[in-house]
């Protein structure tokens, strides 16, 4: 296959990998680490500072911030890859097939992709969310939010994939395969798709932090994951109206966590991109 060389991970990338895995593991252990739960409101202690009972204090309605950070991390880190998967599959279908078929199909797909990319995605997301049914459970609303992100986020990857598939279609080994009698789906599945895999992987990994940030953007606007479920976006909203970082530094934890995880993803991605 083309572009299958791999480079050994350097120390920074290993550290990044460990950080992402550790954050995932801790968030998955939220049930044990934060038995208070993300929704229970301790009305007698709103906006409380850190204590033994509430390691990161409580939010404005008295919910345990540590529990909300753990559960929010779980939601953001588990569902962003799901969105990335949806968008990568769509990108492979649109971009990969168009690139493989070439001609009018490629031009149509590129035109459609360009049109899609020119849409203001934030307003598109807000519009899509506004027309969704109101009576859905918070869990379903989370799934819908990330599904919508996935369904709207395929265009950039599709452009990359269409270009790669177009290059493969015109490559010598595909020409030889055609000359040997291979056509249609078999040629695509046996020779083209395996060579698109590195690009697909790269697009998948690149999409994850994009979707994490997209959800965070929606959450900051109050349009992300439905209450009482937490996410990094809704947790970052707490920073609104923060008067002094010095007085309440624990409120910065979600922001720091987001920065650390995004940096780790970038370090991992630089390795991934180099291997493509």
């Amino acid at each position: 296959m083309l572009g299958n060389r791999k480079r050994p991970m350097n120390a920074a990338r290993k550290l990044a990998c460990v950080v992402v895995l550790a954050v995932c593991a801790v968030s998955l252990a939220a049930n044990w680490l934060a038995p208070a739960g993300y929704a229970k409101q301790f009305r007698e202690a709103p906006s409380a500072p850190p204590s033994r009972q509430h390691l990161l204090g409580t939010d404005e309605v008295g919910r345990d911030r540590f529990a909300r950070v753990l559960y929010g991390t779980r939601i953001s880190l588990l569902l962003a890859p799901a969105s990335a998967l949806v968008s990568t599959v769509l990108a492979a279908l649109v971009g990969g097939l168009a690139g493989y078929l070439g001609g009018i199909w490629l031009r149509l797909a590129r035109g459609f992709t360009d049109l899609f990319l020119s849409l203001p995605w934030l307003f598109l997301l807000i519009t899509v969310r506004a027309i969704l049914p109101l009576n859905v459970s918070p869990l379903v609303s989370v799934l819908i939010t990330f599904l919508v992100l996935g369904l709207l986020g395929w265009a950039a990857s599709a452009r990359v994939l269409s270009t790669s598939a177009d290059a493969l279609r015109n490559s010598d080994f595909v020409l030889q395969a055609r000359a040997s009698g291979l056509h249609g789906s078999r040629l695509f599945l046996v020779h083209v798709l395996p060579n698109l895999k590195p690009v697909l992987y790269a697009q998948f990994w690149i999409s994850i932090p994009v979707f994490i940030l997209s959800e965070a953007n929606l959450g900051i606007l109050g349009l992300g994951v439905a209450e009482p479920l937490p996410s990094w976006g809704s947790l970052l909203r707490e920073l609104e109206g923060l008067i002094s970082f010095r007085e309440e530094p624990w409120r910065l934890v979600p922001l720091l966590l987001l920065m650390v995880v995004m940096t780790s993803f970038q370090l991992l991605l630089s390795n991934q991109e180099a291997s493509v």
């Binding site: 929704a39 409101q41 404005e60 309605v61 606007l221 109050g222 349009l223 209450e227 009482p228 909203r237 609104e240 109206g241």
Partner: peptide, 16 residues
């Protein structure tokens, strides 16, 4: 309305 933290918090309290 999204963006109004007090109202969103009130809704959460009513929910609870």
């Amino acid at each position: 309305n999204a963006g109004s933290k007090p109202r969103e918090r009130m809704a959460v309290m009513v929910q609870e």
